[in-house]
Design a protein around this nucleic acid. Structure first.
Lengths: 175, 175
DNA sequence: AATTAGATATAACGATCACTCTATTAATCT
DNA sequence: AGATTAATAGAGTGATCGTTATATCTAATT
């Protein structure tokens, strides 16, 4: 893996997340990453291609954080997953869910690869909960709580959300 | 109130919501509304000013829908509010919360009037819950559920979310 | 009928957009 | 050292961006 390519992915993710996908230009990205514009086009087919790869990387990061929490934390599976998600909120998600933001900005083209990728990610999320001994009902309930915490964290302080989330997750029953 | 002005607000809200604030241009808006570009600048100082007014209108619509539900629905206050929010989801929010999307696109300028307007809106939301005989704890819990349902509704079918939401709201206790 | 106000089309502003081409330099590898 | 590959700067594509200016035209008011 090329070093310049890695720099591009890191800086592009930061800028896309801070400003939005349409709002930020490729010129700003290459300047922030310290590479030439042609280097970007040497590694990626297009802006859309770059965004797709960023979302793929971000999905891996998110699930690896959840899996780490499942491995290391104590308590119920729901509690472990909440703990992992809160860590994600604190480290990488103070400006909303990047997947939903991509879907929102490109949803006017329903078959757009970016939009399909977001639907796939959200399905994958619930399936991951189900693969951890949770019923479909419980998985959807947990998903609702986690999505809610991500949105709330944009305007409320994270500690209050953390407290609220831990309290509410106790009510999820595997029926 | 001018007719052209009203047309502009309606069509601009639709396009901003479908594409995002940076993604859509003023030219597309005036074409969709069927007015001249200079008519837009006759009624609004700038694109930012137009967005601000749209968010103000949208806030009024949302709260009036909640208040209608409180007035007409049966059951607990939480149940009534959930019912109002679900109606909002079905009629006007299949692409996420427009306020959060505004905050996300402009959050890189923390003192931006649009960003402050969004923070204000979310505070107002929780205060509205509190003004309906709910404790702060219960209000934040309900906010988390409603925000979660808005996000989930972007990729999941609304009926499943509705069922989930009604089930989870029963657990909110006014402690 | 005359005056005012609102809306129109059009052009232009400088800036930026995603993307391409070219030509030169730097780094890597056998 | 020589050959291949990666990265560079810079110019250029046509298109669009938000915004302003101008000049004509229509509608409402006096």
């Amino acid at each position: 893996m090329s070093r310049k390519r890695e720099d591009l992915l890191v800086h592009a993710e930061k800028l896309f997340y801070e400003h939005g996908f349409h709002a930020i230009g490729l010129k700003a990205i290459v300047q922030d990453a310290g590479v030439a514009l042609m280097t970007l086009y040497n590694h990626f087919d297009s802006k859309e291609d770059l965004i797709l790869e960023i979302l793929n990387r971000r999905e891996k990061m998110y699930f690896s954080m959840l899996k780490d929490a499942v491995r290391k934390e104590e308590g119920s599976i729901e509690h472990k997953l909440v703990s992992g998600h809160i860590q994600w909120l604190k480290t990488s998600a103070s400006n909303g869910c990047m997947f939903l933001r991509a879907k929102e900005e490109f949803s006017s083209i329903p078959d757009h690869p970016l939009v399909k990728s977001v639907y796939s990610h959200k399905e994958k999320m619930i399936q991951f909960f189900e693969s951890n001994e949770m019923s479909r009902t419980a998985a959807v309930q947990l998903a609702l709580l986690l999505e809610g915490s991500t949105s709330l964290a944009e305007t409320l302080n994270v500690q209050e959300i953390e407290k609220t989330l831990y309290a509410m997750v106790e009510n999820i029953k595997n029926s």
